[in-house]
Design a protein around this nucleic acid. Structure first.
Ligand SMILES: [Mn+2]
Ligand SMILES: [Mn+2]
Ligand SMILES: [Zn+2]
Ligand SMILES: [Zn+2]
Lengths: 140, 140
DNA sequence: TGTTATTTGCAATAGACTTGCAATAATGCT
DNA sequence: AGCATTATTGCAAGTCTATTGCAAATAACA
């Protein structure tokens, strides 16, 4: 239940904690796969929460600005997915090419590589994305 | 000049080597950054090659099916980019968050990790994407 | 409870990409 | 070279995700 802290974060930036933002946050909290805007929309509809798809988009964008949510664009998908950052550490994903199942990979092998890349390219590295894909146990 | 070989690959699948396909292939051959469909379109227009944007899309899709081109969806971009596979080995990219410059990273640190992931997740790993982002020398 | 600024829903819009279809052009055969 | 066949092209229209304008609704705070 991270709602009060987030409420403070919202107010600190002149924003408000609303019924729909609570609903989106609660859904993200109880969801263990990264979800798309349309999935958030339809899952809230099933839960009898009245919300417009536009509001879902605006909400995830606000949560992204506050640093509470990460947006990810997985390969072979045509829509972004969103995952709560709070309480979860940096990690990556693997996606099944058949059924689309997404599983967390609780690892990151890229710390060391970053320095090497900065030396080679003269870039300052700020972020990275890493995603595996293949066939899940059920789809093999 | 890989055109004749590709011509064979096309004919082997009941396809034809056309003026527009030659033009797209030639552009991909001489381009050293991954290019988007609209970039292919406008660059060919500047070179006085008459081609429709739709044809560019259809062409890169055919080349993808033939395994001659890789499609990549980089973070913070809203369009796919395409790169010729022929003669270039598996590698990854870093992208500047300011100017969008993309540089090849001629490395891949993920061979070993694949086995570990297969053991942990029971997936069969087939592919991966890796991308760094940051600030290029000019934009720092 | 009343005031004010933020947020919401609805409609319209933007932008990447795809699809239907008739006209065009590449291929293979004579 | 000429012809028949069939893939390919261009144009228009459509699809899908995501964004924007604006008036109505509502959260924040006294
Ligand atoms: Mn995750
Ligand atoms: Mn490259
Ligand atoms: Zn990582
Ligand atoms: Zn790799």
């Amino acid at each position: 239940m991270l709602e009060p802290t987030i409420g403070q974060g919202l107010r600190a930036t002149g924003r408000r904690m609303t019924r729909t933002r609570k609903a989106v946050l609660a859904l993200l909290e109880r969801t263990h796969q990264p979800v798309s805007a349309s999935e958030i929309f339809s899952q809230l509809q099933e839960a009898d929460v009245a919300i417009d798809l536009v509001t879902v988009y605006r909400t995830v964008n606000v949560l992204k600005e506050l640093g509470l949510v990460v947006q990810m664009d997985l390969h072979q998908e045509n829509q972004s997915r969103y995952e709560l950052k709070e309480g979860r550490k940096h990690h990556h994903h693997i996606r099944c090419q058949i059924c689309g199942k997404i599983v967390d990979l609780l690892l990151c092998p890229l710390k060391k590589l970053t320095k090497l890349i900065e030396e080679r390219t003269q870039f300052v590295v700020d972020d990275h994305t890493l995603e595996f894909s293949g066939f899940c146990p059920k789809c093999q």
